[in-house]
Structure formats: structure tokens, C-alpha cells
């Protein structure tokens, strides 16, 4: 999802017998649904896993501004422009809530940004796809933010307090993002045949990458098992993906669009939609940096950071000068 394939650094899930007293007490608190707070004792692997996950999530929010920012100047009306700007501002805010949550674990903001720029930490694969038409802004809001909400609602109950609290704020705001996306799609689908074709084209291109956002099937993953035991991750990738498909197919039907999957069919026995096989080789290629926009996204981020360096430094120098003046006057 926004945090995909988080490495816990562990090779097996520990038994209670193997745990130290601290670890047992920690696990007991988690099992009792007591939130872990920054100054509480925690296993190093828990800390590391959370730092990786929250950081990846934060980077995703920030990089996620780029495909949408691409359309601010070309939104089809002033209202759409204002709405899109508000949405992109929210993404910036979400990134900031999350960076701060990660910082409570002892990693600095600069370190996180350096890690992103050095390619040590990823952001969600989804933001390496281009937004080619205005309909893509609709599809991103509807599908990408829809998938994000699906993942983020369980994170509101995550065992780590600052992350859970950030997620509560984010979920409240994210719902606007999904609805505005669906609203863009509705307008296009009610428009001319060309506009509806544009909406269909956007769905065709965003559907599979959206399903990949949930990450590979994780039933056999040690990392997922650990994250589940720690209540960092509360539902499996496949469970979340299935929920997303079940929720989205009727919405697509409403729009009169066709989901680009010949195997998609309601399964009466399961009470869920069956859907076709996902091309995981594409997902892994994108994660490795070979998606359509990986290099462009990173270049934009690095340039923003480097071009802004003098502003950050000047602001500190200005604050120090004023401090010094105030002290001299006192």
C-alpha cells in the first residue's frame, strides 16, 4: 500500500518462550490493545519496522503530490483547480503528520529525506505512473485514494500511538479525496462520448497499479506475520485487496465503465468478486526503479530539496540574528 513490503529485519516470528522479560511485557501490552508511546520500551525490531513503514508512508504522501500537482495549472475550471490545490495541500499535511510520528522514534527528518534520496527507502509504487489526462486526476482520487483509505482505516488502530493518531487525522481528510475523484469521473461519464472514453482510458491504466498498491500476497511472509503480531498491520494484503475490489466494482458499474479484467466476476459462494491474476513482475520492476516515472519523481524531489536549501539556512540565520538581538537588548 502506501507502505509496501516493509522489512522487519527478522527471519522468524518469536515464541513467547524466546522472549526476554521486557519483550514479554511489551507483547502483553500489545495483546491488551494498550498503545505503545514513544518513550515506552520497545524491541529494536519494532522501532526499526515502524520507522521504515511510517517513513515510507510519509514519502508516499509527499511524492504523491507530484502526479496531481501536474494538473493544477490545467484543471478544467476554477472550482476544480481550487479543489485540486486543497487536495494537494492535504497530501503535504499528511506527509508532515507522518514525518513527525516517525521522528518520535528517534530518526531525524533530514535522515529520512536523505534515505529517500539515496534510494534506501521507497515510496508507494503507484506514484511512478504518469497522469496523462484530466481523467487521471479523477481515477487517482477514486482508485488510489480509495485504496489508501482501505489500508489506512485499520492503521488508525495501530499499536503505536503517534502513528495511529496521525492516521485518524489522515482518514478524516482522505475521504474528501476519494469523493472528489469520483465526482470528476461522474462528470466525465455524464459528458460527451469523448469525455467518457477518457474516463475509461484512465480506469484502464490505473486499475491494475491500484490493485498492486496492496502489495504481493503476504500469507507466507515473516515480515507480515511479525507486523500482525505487533498490531502494526491488522489485515493482510489480500484481505484489503479483496475489500477494495468488492467496493469498487459496483462504483464502476454506476459510472458505466468497464474494469479491464476479463476474469472479474461475482462469486456467489464466496460472496466476493473473483478477479484476474496480477502481473507482479510489473510491480517488482516499478519498485526496482523501472516504472514510467521513477527517475522523474526522484529528480523532482531532490531538486526541490536542494533548491530549497538556502531558504532553510536563511530562515535559521534570521532566527538566530533575532535571538541575538533580543538577548543584547535584554
Amino acid at each position: 500500500m502506501y507502505a509496501q513490503m516493509i522489512d522487519t529485519g527478522l527471519t522468524k516470528v518469536a515464541d513467547t518462550a524466546d522472549m526476554s522479560d521486557d519483550e514479554r511485557a511489551f507483547q502483553a501490552r500489545i495483546d491488551d490493545d494498550v498503545r505503545i508511546e514513544p518513550k515506552d520500551w520497545m524491541p529494536e525490531a519494532y522501532r526499526r519496522t515502524l520507522i521504515r513503514q511510517i517513513q515510507q508512508h510519509a514519502h508516499s504522501e509527499v511524492v504523491g503530490m507530484l502526479p496531481e500537482g501536474n494538473w493544477i495549472t490545467r484543471a478544467p475550471s476554477l472550482a476544480r483547480k481550487a479543489i485540486l490545490m486543497a487536495k494537494v495541500q492535504d497530501e503535504a499535511g499528511h506527509g508532515l503528520y507522518l514525518y513527525c510520528a516517525a521522528e518520535t522514534l528517534g530518526v531525524s527528518r533530514e535522515q529520512m529525506i536523505e534515505d529517500l534520496h539515496a534510494g534506501k527507502v521507497k515510496y508507494s509504487s503507484i506514484f511512478n505512473y504518469p497522469t496523462l489526462t484530466w481523467a487521471d486526476i479523477g481515477a487517482v482520487g477514486w482508485l488510489v485514494d480509495g485504496a489508501a483509505i482501505m489500508n489506512q482505516i485499520p492503521l488508525c488502530r495501530c499499536s503505536f500511538g503517534p502513528y495511529a493518531r496521525a492516521m485518524i487525522r489522515i482518514c478524516k481528510e482522505e475521504s474528501f479525496h476519494q469523493r472528489q475523484g469520483f465526482d470528476v469521473m461522474m462528470s466525465l461519464c455524464r459528458g460527451t462520448p469523448e469525455q467518457k472514453a477518457m474516463a475509461q482510458d484512465a480506469l484502464d491504466r490505473w486499475w491494475w497499479p491500484s490493485l498492486m498498491m496492496f502489495g504481493p500476497p503476504d500469507a507466507a511472509s515473516v515480515h507480515s506475520a511479525h507486523s500482525a503480531k505487533w498490531k502494526i498491520k491488522r489485515l493482510s494484503n489480500d484481505e484489503l485487496r479483496q475489500r477494495f475490489v468488492d467496493q469498487t466494482v459496483p462504483q464502476s458499474d454506476y459510472l458505466g465503465l468497464r474494469i479491464p479484467d476479463d476474469d472479474l466476476a461475482w462469486n456467489e459462494d464466496r460472496g466476493h468478486y473473483d478477479f484476474g491474476a496480477i502481473d507482479w513482475s510489473e510491480f517488482h520492476e516499478v519498485l526496482k526503479g523501472h516504472g514510467p516515472c521513477n527517475r522523474d519523481r526522484m529528480r523532482t524531489r531532490v531538486n526541490a530539496w536542494e533548491d530549497g536549501a538556502w531558504v532553510r539556512e536563511a530562515a535559521v540565520a534570521h532566527a538566530q540574528k533575532r535571538d541575538a538581538r533580543a538577548k543584547a537588548a535584554a
Binding site: 499535511g93 503528520y97 493518531r165 496521525a166 534570521h318
Partner: peptide
């Protein structure tokens, strides 16, 4: 929550945003 800012004035402005 929290945020980074060079001084108190900027912290208030950033908090607003």
C-alpha cells in the same frame, strides 16, 4: 502534533497550514 520551524512565528504560521 508537532512540526519543524526556524522560530516561534514561523511555527505558528506552519501550524496554521
Amino acid at each position: 502534533g508537532s512540526l519543524h520551524a526556524p522560530d516561534a512565528g514561523m511555527a505558528v504560521r506552519n501550524a496554521r497550514d
